[in-house]
Simulated assay, not measured.
Amino acid sequence: MPQITVDYSDTMENAFDRAGFARALHEAAVEIAAARPEGCKTQFRPSAYTVFGYEDPEARGHAVVHVTIGLLAGRGDETKARLAEAAVELLREHVADAPLTLHASAEIRDLDPSYRKFER
């Protein structure tokens, strides 16, 4: 824990410093949500097809990035809000300016009580 997933439009592939973002977000999770550094895991999932509003998807003028962070239950709403704000700010810092409109968001949620894991 935390389980972090970053879904993003592939149009921003070359503009997104994923390694730098993951490192900074892990540091924020440790500082804000008392996560253990070795517990932070991030998966990046590029999307080949993003549709925004009524825009022709082939125009590819918009990019979407959404960060989902799953934490074990027990963090308050203020902690979750601070971590979400940090994630959005870190996206600002780790996505270079590109000739498209970027829509960035983050959501912090509690992991379901059924959450289990193992390591080898």
Rank of each mutant, 00 (worst) to 15 (best):
E27V: 02
A73D: 05
A86R: 12
A63R: 07
D7G: 06
T42P: 00
K117Q: 09
D7L: 06
E78C: 00
R36N: 13
E85Q: 12
A86S: 08
T68Y: 13
Q3R: 10
P46C: 08
V67F: 08
D7H: 13
R36W: 03
Y115L: 02
R82H: 03
H94Q: 03
R45W: 07
E27T: 06
F44W: 12
V67T: 12
E85G: 07
A106N: 01
A48E: 14
H94C: 02
T50K: 03
V51P: 06
G20L: 02
R23P: 03
D110T: 02
I69A: 09
V88Y: 05
E93Q: 15
G74K: 07
A81G: 00
K117N: 09
P57K: 09
L91P: 04
G61F: 00
A19G: 08
R75S: 01
A84V: 08
E38L: 14
T42I: 14
T5D: 09
G70S: 11
L100H: 14
H66P: 00
L100W: 15
D10A: 12
A106L: 05
R92E: 13
T11S: 13
R23E: 08
S114I: 10
P2G: 02
D17Y: 01
V51Q: 15
S114V: 10
A104V: 13
K41D: 07
L72Q: 12
L91H: 10
S114T: 12
L90N: 04
V51K: 14
D112K: 06
R120A: 14
S9H: 04
L91N: 12
L72R: 14
T101R: 15
P37C: 01
R60P: 05
A22C: 11
A59T: 05
K117R: 14
R116L: 08
L25T: 06
G61Y: 01
R109D: 08
I69P: 01
A34F: 11
I32K: 05
G76A: 07
E55M: 13
P99H: 01
D77A: 14
A35Y: 07
I69H: 04
I4T: 10
Y54D: 14
L83C: 03
D112A: 13
P99T: 01
L90A: 09
D112N: 13
A98E: 15
R116S: 12
D10M: 10
P99D: 02
T79I: 07
V95D: 01
L111D: 03
S47I: 04
A34S: 15
E107G: 05
R109I: 14
A15E: 14
I108F: 02
L91E: 11
G74V: 06
L91I: 09
A28Y: 08
A33E: 04
A63E: 10
R116E: 11
Y8C: 07
T11A: 10
Y115H: 10
V67C: 09
I69R: 02
E119H: 13
I32S: 03
I32E: 04
V64N: 08
A73L: 03
A86Y: 02
N14F: 04
F16R: 01
E58V: 10
A86V: 04
V95F: 00
